[in-house]
C-alpha cells in the first residue's frame, strides 16, 4: 500500500491570489431573424429572435496548482465556459480576472501575454491539428513567433517538448495522419505546453480515446502537473475521469453551476439532487449485476429552459418554490456550495 493511496494530493486552500476568477459570467448566442422572419414581424406576427443562454451567471474561482473538474451533460455550457476561460470566446457579461487583474483592462501586449499563459487542449485529436503541417511546425511555430525560442535553439526546443509529451523526436518530420489517436493527443499537449503556459483548459481531452490510451494520457497530465506546476480546468462528461484527476469539482446543468465542492465531498456527500442522480447513473466497474437507477425525463432545450430551478421538471423533490424562484449557490458545508431550495427548508 503506497503512501499516495492513503493521502490524496490536496493542495492547501487559499494559496495566494486565485489564478482565475470569474464573476457572473454569461454567454448568450443569438440567432438573428432571417428575411422571412423580419417581414413576418413587421406584419405583426409574434416572432422573436432566438437566444440561447449557454452560460448564465457563473462564478468560478480557480486557485494556483488546483485541478478543477467541470462536469455536465451535453448542452450544459461546460465547453462554452471553458472557451471563455481560455480567452478564445468573449463573454457577453461578467468579468474575468487573471491573477487579480481584469483581463479587459490590459493593453494589447499584456493581453497577448496573458492569452499565451492559458492554453487549451481539445477533444478531437483529428480535428485540432493542421493536417498539412509537420509535427515540428505544429509544436514549434508558436514559440518561435512569440520569441520564446530563437531560430538557433529551435530544433532542440521542439525535441524537448516532444519528449516531455512522450513522443519520439525522430518523428518530428511526420504529418498528423501518420499518428494514432493517442499520439495525436500528445502532439496537442506538446503544442499547448510549448509556449510555457501555467494554466491549461482540457476540453474532453481524453473522451475520444480507448481506455488503455486514455489511462496513458491521464497519467501524462498528472505527471506534467507536478513537473511544471500547472493548473488545470478539466472539462469532462466522464465522472470517473474527473473524480480521478480533480481536487475540486464543479457541476453544471443548463448553463448554471448547481454544485461545487472538493472531489471527496462531491462523491461522498453530494448535496444537489442533480448531482446525486448523476452519480447514481454512472456505471461503475465495482458494481455487479444491478438495477440501473433512473432520472426521469430528458435535458430540456437551452432555447427554452424551465423557469425557476432548471432541474425542477426532473427533480424528485421539486416543490412549488422551485418552479418560480431561481436558487442561488450557497455554502452548505465547508468548501461545498449548492444551488438548491431544499437546503433552506432543512
Amino acid at each position: 500500500m503506497s503512501a499516495a493511496m492513503t493521502a490524496p494530493p490536496i493542495r492547501a486552500i487559499d494559496a495566494g491570489a486565485p489564478m482565475m476568477e470569474l464573476r457572473d459570467i454569461a454567454r448568450r448566442f443569438e440567432k438573428k431573424l432571417d428575411l422571412a422572419g423580419r417581414i413576418a414581424r413587421r406584419l405583426g406576427a409574434p416572432v422573436k429572435e432566438e437566444v440561447v443562454h449557454a452560460v448564465d451567471g457563473v462564478d468560478l474561482t480557480i486557485r494556483k496548482g488546483e485541478v478543477v473538474g467541470l462536469v455536465g451533460e451535453s448542452g450544459c455550457g461546460k465547453s462554452t465556459l471553458g472557451r471563455m476561460v481560455a480567452g478564445i470566446l468573449p463573454p457577453s457579461g461578467g468579468t474575468i480576472q487573471r491573477n487579480g487583474v481584469d483581463i479587459r483592462s490590459l493593453d494589447a501586449a499584456a493581453a497577448r501575454e496573458m492569452k499565451l499563459r492559458t492554453q487549451m487542449i481539445f477533444q478531437d485529436p483529428y480535428a485540432s491539428l493542421n493536417p498539412r503541417m509537420r509535427v515540428a511546425d505544429i509544436v514549434g511555430e508558436a514559440p518561435l513567433v512569440h520569441g520564446i525560442v530563437s531560430r538557433a535553439g529551435y530544433d532542440a526546443y521542439v525535441d524537448e517538448q516532444m519528449r516531455r509529451a512522450g513522443l519520439d523526436p525522430a518523428f518530428k518530420r511526420r504529418y498528423p495522419h501518420q499518428f494514432s489517436g493517442g499520439q495525436r493527443q500528445r502532439i496537442g499537449i506538446a503544442r499547448a505546453l510549448a509556449v510555457k503556459p501555467d494554466f491549461i483548459v482540457c476540453d474532453e481531452a481524453v473522451a475520444a480515446l480507448d481506455v488503455s490510451i486514455q489511462a496513458q494520457i491521464l497519467n501524462l497530465f498528472i505527471k506534467l502537473r507536478t513537473e511544471l506546476d500547472l493548473t488545470y480546468l478539466f472539462i469532462s462528461h466522464d465522472l470517473g475521469v474527473v473524480e480521478h484527476i480533480s481536487d475540486r469539482v464543479v457541476i453544471m446543468y443548463l448553463g448554471r453551476v448547481v454544485e461545487e465542492a472538493p472531489s471527496e465531498t462531491v462523491f461522498a456527500q453530494p448535496n444537489h439532487p442533480y448531482t446525486r442522480s448523476l452519480l447514481d447513473a454512472v456505471p461503475r466497474i465495482e458494481s455487479r449485476k444491478r438495477a440501473f437507477s433512473v432520472v426521469k425525463g430528458e435535458i430540456p432545450s437551452p432555447l427554452n429552459p424551465p423557469q425557476g430551478c432548471h432541474f425542477h421538471p426532473r427533480c424528485p423533490h421539486a416543490m412549488e418554490r422551485c418552479r418560480v424562484e431561481r436558487p442561488i449557490l450557497k455554502e452548505v458545508a465547508p468548501g461545498q456550495r449548492s444551488a438548491c431550495h431544499l437546503n433552506d427548508a432543512a
Binding site: V211, S212, K223
Partner: peptide, 22 residues
C-alpha cells in the same frame, strides 16, 4: 491492464496502471 486503466474512486490522484504501447 484494462481494469487497471479505468479511473475509479479507489485510485484517486495516483497514476493509473497503464498498458504501454498500443
Amino acid at each position: 491492464g484494462l481494469i487497471g486503466s479505468v479511473p475509479s474512486r479507489n485510485k484517486r490522484g495516483e497514476p493509473l496502471r497503464q498498458i504501454p504501447g498500443m
